[in-house]
Amino acid sequence: MKRSGAPKRRKGLERNTPMVNKTSFQRKTEMPRGNGFKRGANPPKKNGRKGRPKTAPKTAIDLAKVRSEGLCEIGLKCFGTAPAVESAHRRGKGSGGVGPKNTTSNTASNLLRGCVACHDFIDNVAPDDAARLGLKVLHGKAHPYEIPVQHYQHGWVLLDNFGGWRAAPEAACTPGALLPVIVCGPWDLLTGGGAVAEVLDRFGHADCCGWAGARDGLLVCGCRSVVCAVEEAS
């Protein structure tokens, strides 16, 4: 068989007009450079507001650190022997909220210093059991500094917002049925005004009929409901 020769090379396409080098796109005005988003800052939300703080203010944490003396205040898993390395919120940030109108979530009375195991236990494993002991405070009208807590080192106490604590009245410390503790002056208890009137209004007893007064350390409404435990102001 006779082989055919190699095919002839065709002529490439030619452009009738030469290509013109155009100038690159240039912005007439420079875009302002910002500082950029810094790692660790609270990212802004779509509505322009900053996100909720990820932790409590350093001042409140420092007060809780001094109060704990470096040991876990919860003690349900470590029995109070482990170093306190985390701050646990008694009332969660989602329940109490933070901000200019409601800052109870980030106060020393709402913080407990704990070890990793105890913090995880009251937050994720047994929050209901923790609430029975005041280690968690459910959403409601009472403030964290009014709810007794079973502190592993000191027993049943009331925490304040200055890093201190005091023994809680026995009448308020029934596990699972904790009562808020309100400080009232003797005149308020006698007349039902002042702090007593504020408490009755806050807990929904302002319109109840009858006399409200203290009996055995408890504030009893005219409807015969126990509203809270009371301490007379010194």
Rank of each mutant, 00 (worst) to 15 (best):
R9F: 07
R9P: 05
L111T: 10
S105L: 04
G40H: 02
R33K: 07
K54W: 11
S109M: 07
E69I: 00
K45N: 13
N35L: 07
C118G: 10
V98M: 00
C72S: 03
S68R: 07
R33N: 02
K45S: 12
E69V: 04
G94Y: 01
R9M: 04
A117C: 03
L71N: 01
S24I: 09
V20D: 09
R33T: 13
N47A: 11
G36M: 02
P57K: 08
E14I: 14
G51A: 15
P83L: 11
L111N: 07
T107Y: 00
A84T: 10
K38C: 03
K38Y: 01
P7Q: 03
F25E: 11
T55H: 12
R49H: 13
K46D: 13
L111R: 07
G51H: 01
K38P: 00
G92I: 04
S105Q: 10
R91I: 02
K28Y: 09
R67F: 13
I74G: 00
N21R: 14
V98A: 02
L13S: 14
S109N: 08
K11A: 14
H89E: 06
M19G: 00
T81P: 00
S87I: 03
E30W: 01
L111E: 08
R49C: 10
S95R: 03
A64C: 14
F25P: 06
G40M: 05
R91N: 02
N42A: 13
F37C: 06
K28L: 12
G80R: 05
C78I: 12
T29F: 10
R90G: 05
E14C: 12
G92A: 07
E86H: 09
R39T: 06
C78Q: 10
L76I: 11
